[in-house]
Design a protein around this nucleic acid. Sequence first.
DNA 1: CTTGCATCTGTAGTCGCTACAGATGGTACG
DNA 2: CGTACCATCTGTAGCGACTACAGATGCAAG
Lengths: 139, 139
Amino acid sequence: MADITNARGYPIGAMSRETGVNIETIRYYERIKLMPQPDRTAGGNRQYTHDQLKRLSFIKRSRELGFSIDEIRAMLTMVDQDGVSCGEVHAMTVEHLGSVKEKIRHLKKLEWALTGMAAECAKGDVPDCPIIETLFDER
Amino acid sequence: MADITNARGYPIGAMSRETGVNIETIRYYERIKLMPQPDRTAGGNRQYTHDQLKRLSFIKRSRELGFSIDEIRAMLTMVDQDGVSCGEVHAMTVEHLGSVKEKIRHLKKLEWALTGMAAECAKGDVPDCPIIETLFDER
DNA sequence: CTTGCATCTGTAGTCGCTACAGATGGTACG
DNA sequence: CGTACCATCTGTAGCGACTACAGATGCAAG
């Protein structure tokens, strides 16, 4: 009397469509044990549950926010053990935020340098390109 | 009567020290033909010229500015052919600048999202961590 | 029953390095 | 001249996070 509604799970293609995660990547996540091994049809095709779909979206969203696979694994382990320590998650987020800020600072410096270089360049087909000169010059 | 001063070139360690490029990386650049094959001592050790040192610094500086190996290869090809088209170099720089700006924009969005998530979290060991919730929630 | 897309496994490639292992080169000191 | 010892050599494998095949099946619609 169970398993009548929703008896059939999501095949991998549906998972991919729903989450935007590439099929190959989903299988990769299984290989590295970020996603569990799903049920299989008689023929051997993967059949995912709705919970697994949510898990994959979680991974996707976290990746988009720049968390590493290992960071995500840590968070999911807590979720799996039902022992989510908000403190730990907060700490991870803050640390990650720090590295994002750092990257922004770094990229802004690049932006500056590149803008300066581009501005100095007359764009003509002259032999001495100021950009190349800048890059080649002794420190 | 030639080759008396500067007869001995720079060994790879000196190149590394001068430019800050890792020794393994210098050999890697040779393998992928970004750096030329240098002369060798009788025993087989690499001996670089001053021009090659400058070339390596060029690569280093360009890498620091975020240019890809292929972009650098393109610039160096122009330099090697002595047909530096300032227009092309300028175009590459501007395009690269565009992608840097894009990255900054992207990271700022992340910064926002992460800041928001971190702020909502009470850090307590409560069962429902707002960060995890946010990441898990349906779109 | 056939067509044809979806999915399967397994392996190798991507980028830009980095890290070995195990064998020589080169040089300073006694 | 020998020896100690660092520098350098080649070649291969690993990293992170996928991506891209090849070649074999599954499965659903007409």
